[in-house]
Structures are given as C-alpha cells and as structure tokens.
Design a binder for these strands. Sequence first.
DNA 1: GGAGAAATGTTATCCTATTGCTTCTTTAAA
DNA 2: TTTAAAGAAGCAATAGGATAACATTTCTCC
Lengths: 162, 162
Amino acid sequence: MAAPLEIASSSPRARQALEHAERLCQERGVRLTVLRRRVLEIIWSHARPLGAYAILDVLRDDGRAGAPPTVYRALDFLLEQGLIHRLASLNVFTGCCQPDRRHGGQFLICRDCGQVDELNNTQVECLLNDEADARGFEVLTQMIEVLGRCPNCWQGVTHRAG
Amino acid sequence: MAAPLEIASSSPRARQALEHAERLCQERGVRLTVLRRRVLEIIWSHARPLGAYAILDVLRDDGRAGAPPTVYRALDFLLEQGLIHRLASLNVFTGCCQPDRRHGGQFLICRDCGQVDELNNTQVECLLNDEADARGFEVLTQMIEVLGRCPNCWQGVTHRAG
DNA sequence: GGAGAAATGTTATCCTATTGCTTCTTTAAA
DNA sequence: TTTAAAGAAGCAATAGGATAACATTTCTCC
Ligand SMILES: [Zn+2]
Ligand SMILES: [Zn+2]
Ligand SMILES: [Zn+2]
Ligand SMILES: [Zn+2]
C-alpha cells in the first residue's frame, strides 16, 4: 500500500478542523491539551488514516518523548469527544467531518489506496435503529465500513486492462 | 466480560450449519478439511463469538498441535467461503446464518454479554451501494456493526436501577 | 508410483493495545 | 499563597492479535 501522504499542517481543512475542535472542547469544558491537539493535527495533516504507531512516529519526529500509551490516551480523548473515528477494519484513525453531531461513522474505504470518504446517511442510521428497536436492542453506536475501490483506483485498473 | 458458553457440538443449529457448509463446499469444489470443519464447529458450538486464540485453545484441548497460523488459515478459508464473519470491532469470528448469499454482515453486538445477532437488511445494503455508486466507488464488501446492549442486559440494569 | 499442488506444522516476529506505576501540571479550595 | 486533589503525561513491561518464511505432510491427478 502507498505510504500516507503528508499534507501541510496549515492546509485549510486541517486548520478548520482544529479551530472547530478548539471551539467544541471549550463549549464542553474539556481540555484540548497540546498533545491532544497535536495528535488531531497529525491525523488531519495526512491524506489517509493513520495507525496509532504511525502517529507515534510523527510525535517522535517532533522530538517529543513518547510511548504507545501517550498516543492511545490522546486518541481515546479524541474518540470520546467525537473528533475522530476509528476504522476497526484497518486499525486506523481518521478525522470526523461532523464532530457536532454524535455518530458512529459511515465510511467508504479504498482497499488499494487507503483513502477514506465519510458518509452521513441518516436513513441508513434510522433503518438500523429501527431494526435494533424491533429486537429490543439498545443502540450505543453504529459503525459502517464499506470496503472497495475509489474511482481513481478502479479507473486506473480499467485503463490498464482495456 | 462473561466467558463464552460452550454448547453441545450436536446442537441443532451447529449440526445444521455444518451440514450446510459441507454441501456448499462440495458444490463449490473446495475442500472443507477436518481442521476447517472443526474450526467451524468450534465457532458454532459457542454462544458467543470467539477470538482466534480462543479457538486455538480449543484445538489444543482436542490434542491437536497448533500455532496461530493453523487457526488463521482455517479462518481465512471460512471467511473466503462466506461461512463465517469477522467482527472487526471485537477481533472475533462468528458463524454466518446465510452463507448462500454473499454479504458483508450486519450485526447487533451486545457490549455487556458479547452476544451477537445478525441482520440481513437489504434496504440498508442497497442504500449504501447507492451512496457508493453516486461517488463512483466500487463496493467489494460492507460491514455493519451496531454496538449496544441486548434486551437481557439492559433489562437487568433497569431492574437493578429502578 | 511419482510429480505437482494444496494444506498443515513450526518457529519467529511484527503490529496493535493495555496495565500499572511514577511524575508533572492544572485546578480549586483553604 | 500555599496546598491538596484531580487530571494528564512519562515510562516500562506485557498482553493480545496477526503474519512471514520455511519445512513437512497430504491430497490429486497423471
Ligand atoms: Zn464523523
Ligand atoms: Zn483508491
Ligand atoms: Zn452472514
Ligand atoms: Zn447482552
């Protein structure tokens, strides 16, 4: 798989996501510490989702001392605050596009390039909630991961093949 | 979490699932070897999904020599044949209720007791496929995991609390 | 029977995640 | 302003999940 691309930290989407996070944390009275903020920045600064150890490597490049718990605790915080999602099928973490609204996350994940697209289909969410209700099941969180190939990747194959 | 309950290997659902698997593999011209069959049996013989190492422990109790690759290879085969699913959020494996029809799997997973209920909501499946189509994304497989509490578990809490 | 393919055995290692405990920092009360 | 308590981060060790690489066995087909 291709290595995750680094994006300028000051990219519009990263800056916007960080400002949004600052605001949310202030509203909620929770602390977006330097470390937590930096981990969020690292996640948003890459085109593809990163694993915990990849994030740790970046932290070490920063010069910061670090062991796995350092990054996992920051990730736990960001997950609790709904600022990031964990993609269980890949053991990676990706920034949430709608951190205001609590949700489990719906993702299109490209098997070939690792790129991720977050959906927000409330109809799907409701249908699943209905299914759960019908069985007396109390829903805490939904996670939907659709694995496949993004346009770039399958078009590349098509061109080569035909 | 509660330990996974062992169920008699000859329980109706286990026996039925194994017969179904035998038939499918024969039709498909693939080999359901003794090991693969036994792993499938172990999975169906437990009330809750098992992790790979838990399955390995059972194999060892059988007296069979075994290392992780032993069980992972069998699991890979069963996954390829759609006879089991992997629940990525828990790193466990569970038997598929509809191995004829290829599908990623939709699950209600109880956070407290680990019990799993497989859904087969085609409307959800279609909606997600539509979302993917609209983005030019080629779907290979969908995985849906709804985490929450089963009736038994939240009713227990309700009784205790109120 | 013999060649090639498929499956399994075996060992070592990698990747992911957590536990337990210590130290530092922040917060708020005295 | 000191000080206690809580929260966050540092640190070392370890648990848990999965794979790589290679040897050996078993099966299939000629
Ligand atoms: Zn989101
Ligand atoms: Zn792609
Ligand atoms: Zn199924
Ligand atoms: Zn339960």
